[in-house]
Design a binder for these strands. Structure first.
Lengths: 210, 210
DNA sequence: TTGAATTAAACAAACGTTTAATTAAAATAT
DNA sequence: ATATTTTAATTAAACGTTTGTTTAATTCAA
C-alpha cells in the first residue's frame, strides 16, 4: 500500500468533507474524486470513520512542536511570543482552511466518541501551550490582568470567523470573490494586524515596549 | 394544521440537528422524537430541507428589530451601545445554543442554495446594524481607529468559541460539567466581562468615560 | 358530507461495507 | 536468469440497511 496513494485519498476526502460535511460526503464520492475503486477505501482505512481519524492524525501532528519551541525560547519577551503566536496561528489556519473547517464541524457534531476524544486531546494540548505564554506574561507583570481562557478564545474565534465561510468573508470584508489566493492573502494581513492591535491594547502593552 | 404542533416538531428537530447535525439526523428521528407520524413531516413542511428553512425563519426573525432600536436610541453614547450590544448578543446566543449551533454548521457546509442565501441575508443584515454602531463611534471621535469588520469578527468569534462545544468549554474554563444551567450562567458572565474589557481597551475608552 | 389530519405501507435511490474473483508485484526456488 | 509460488493490490458486483418521499386508505373535525 503506497503512502502516496493513501495521502492522495486523504487529500481528496479532505476537500469533500470541508465542502459538503462528513455526513454529506459519500464513500463513493471520495473514491470517485480520488480516482480509485470504491472498495479501496475500506481496504486502506477500514471504514469512512477511520479514514477521518487518519486524516486528523496526519494533519494535526505538526502544530504542537512549534508551540513548545516558542515556549522554550528564552530570548523572546512575553509580548514577542504573543506576536509570534498570532503570526503562526493565522498562517497555519489560512493555509489549511479545509482541514480547519473539518475540525470545526467535528467539534460541533462529531457522533463518534473516538473522533470527539481525538479532537479534544489535540485542542487541549494546544490550549495548554498557549496558556503558558499568557501566565508567564502575567507573572512577570508585563501583561495586564485579563481572563486568559477568554482571551485565547478571542484569538481562535476571530481567526475562525472569516476563514470558515469565504462567501460571508468576501461580502463583509469587501474583497473581490474571484480569486481564492488573493482572498487568503488579504485576510491573513488584516487578521494579523487586527489581532496584534487588539491584544496589545487588551494586555496593556505600551507602544515601543519590548 | 395547528401552529403548536408545527412548532413542536421544529423544536424537536432543532435539538436533533444541533446534536447530530442536519445530515446526521433522519426524518424518522425527528418524527419519533416529536411523537408524530413520519409522513407528517412532508405533509407539514414539504421536505426535510424546507423544515430547516422554516426553523431558521422562525428563530431568526427576532434579532434585527432589537439592533435597529439600539441604533435609533439617541440617549446612548457609542460606548454604551457597544456594552448593550455585548449584553444582547451574549444573552441571545447563550439562550439559543442549539439554534446557534445549527446556524454555524450550515454556514460551514450548507449544500442547499436556499439555505445558504437565507443565512447570508440574516447575517449581513445584522452585520450592517452593528457596523453602524462602530462607524458612529469612529466619526464622533469616541473610538480609536480600528478595523471595524475584524472587530465585529472578534465579538462573534469569541462568543462562538466556547458556546459551540460545551465539553471543550468545560475543560478549558474549569467549570463543573454536571449542570447545563450553571455552565451557561458562568459562561455568560465571563463572556460579558471579558468582551467589555477587551473592547474598552481596543477602542481606547478611558475609565469613567461615557 | 366535505375537507383536513393521520396512518401504515411501500417506493426507489443511496448508503457503508463485504465478497469473491482477478491482476500485479514480490519473494522464493530452480 | 527463469520459473514458480506467495502475497498484495485492484476490481465489479452484491450485500443488507437506511435514506427522504409518496401513496392510498382511514380517522377526525367542521
Amino acid at each position: 500500500m503506497s503512502t502516496d496513494k493513501r495521502e492522495h485519498i486523504l487529500t481528496e476526502a479532505e476537500k469533500l468533507f470541508a465542502e459538503k460535511g462528513f455526513d454529506g460526503t459519500s464513500v463513493r464520492d471520495i473514491a470517485h474524486n480520488a480516482g480509485v475503486n470504491l472498495a479501496m477505501i475500506s481496504y486502506y482505512f477500514g471504514s469512512k470513520e477511520k479514514l477521518l481519524e487518519s486524516l486528523i492524525e496526519l494533519r494535526a501532528g505538526y502544530t504542537i512542536g512549534i508551540l513548545e519551541e516558542l515556549n522554550k525560547d528564552q530570548t523572546l519577551s512575553p509580548w514577542d511570543k504573543i506576536e509570534r503566536l498570532v503570526e503562526y496561528y493565522v498562517n497555519k489556519i489560512i493555509t489549511n482552511i479545509p482541514f480547519h473547517n473539518i475540525m470545526h464541524q467535528q467539534a460541533l457534531n462529531a457522533r463518534s466518541v473516538e473522533i470527539k476524544d481525538l479532537i479534544m486531546s489535540i485542542k487541549l494540548r494546544n490550549v495548554e501551550q498557549v496558556r503558558k505564554i499568557f501566565t508567564d506574561g502575567l507573572q512577570k507583570g508585563v501583561f495586564r490582568q485579563v481572563d486568559i481562557e477568554m482571551t485565547m478564545g478571542s484569538i481562535m474565534g476571530t481567526i475562525s470567523q472569516y476563514t470558515i465561510s469565504r462567501d460571508f468573508g468576501c461580502r463583509v470584508l469587501h474583497i473581490e470573490q474571484t480569486n481564492e489566493e488573493t482572498y487568503r492573502a488579504e485576510l491573513a494581513i488584516r487578521l494579523k494586524a487586527h489581532l496584534k492591535q487588539l491584544l496589545k491594547a487588551h494586555l496593556g502593552i505600551k507602544d515601543g515596549e519590548k
